[in-house]
């Protein structure tokens, strides 16, 4: 069983929900990411979504755009992100790591080479924002051959027939984008999310993570009552931006946010 599936299974047995923080690798500088990952795990994160910086992050709001710019100012490449994961794996063999980003850096490396390198590094899942299942036939097969989960997005605009198709193509978990918009935009409506999740669950047994618009303990807790996983990004990245000049403070400060969300979710 994949690391992601066993993670969700264990949580379910304990009656808890997954806390899934997102940070952009290499933001604000290459050395920060590894200690940050460990600190988030210690504070109660179950799965880490590690952003692969891209020059043209079309689906992201200003907060993550700037994170990409900071990471790219140090020339953080996909191979560097994979090295961070490999280093993380030297001391942590249990926490799943999901790479999140855009297709072009993977295109350039080549799907086959990427699948191999990601597997070698200990990556568990890949979420490529601009790669819908229709275009991912070859990519999906190569990832599957390396036991890497391909995680797809569902949106408020996704019609039911597509929900079924997308869930059939993906594995690990599905990511429900709770708002129409880019990352870091409007706050979400929990009741609406809950009714969408009911529809999604008619079509899949996979765990459902919810992201976009979760910004504090209260929204994390509210979502944890209806979803299997709570994905939080922009608030953390904002904190990283605030502390860009005091990098040694970043792991602790970000872990304070995730730790507090953890407590709120477990209450």
């Amino acid at each position: 069983m994949s690391r992601i599936s066993s993670c969700f299974e264990k949580l379910q047995a304990e009656g808890r929900k997954a806390l899934i923080p997102y940070v952009t690798a290499g933001d604000p500088a290459p050395g920060v990411t590894l200690p940050l990952m460990h600190a988030m795990v210690e504070s109660g994160a179950d799965i880490i979504e590690l952003g692969v910086p891209f020059s043209d992050p079309m689906a992201d709001g200003p907060v993550i755009q700037l994170a990409c710019e900071r990471a790219l100012s140090h020339n953080t490449r996909l191979v560097d992100v994979l090295s961070v994961v490999a280093e993380f794996r030297q001391t942590n063999q249990t926490t799943p790591v999901v790479l999140m980003g855009y297709l072009n850096p993977i295109e350039v490396m080549g799907y086959g080479a990427f699948a191999q390198a990601a597997s070698d590094a200990g990556v568990d899942g890949v979420l490529t924002v601009d790669l819908p299942p229709e275009e991912a036939v070859e990519f999906g097969a190569l990832m599957k051959a390396k036991q890497i989960d391909v995680i797809y997005l569902l949106a408020p605009t996704t019609v039911e027939s597509r929900i079924e198709k997308i869930c059939a193509a993906g594995s690990g978990y599905v990511y429900y984008v709770s708002v129409k918009g880019v990352t870091g935009s409007a706050s979400l409506d929990v009741n609406e999310v809950a009714s969408r999740l009911d529809i999604i669950r008619k079509h899949t047994d996979m765990p459902v993570g919810v992201g976009f618009g979760i910004r504090d303990d209260a929204s994390a807790r509210a979502i944890s009552e209806v979803a299997d996983g709570v994905i939080v990004g922009s608030v953390l990245v904002n904190k990283i931006a605030e502390l860009a000049d005091q990098q040694d403070k970043i792991p602790e400060a970000v872990a304070a946010i995730t730790g507090s969300m953890r407590q709120a979710m477990d209450k």
Binding site: D130, E135, A155
Partner: peptide, 20 residues
Amino acid sequence: QGGHFGDFGGRYVSETLMAA
């Protein structure tokens, strides 16, 4: 049908835009 011109073209967008 999928908007491909040989190896090129297609529809590489985030899910939110698919329906539109």
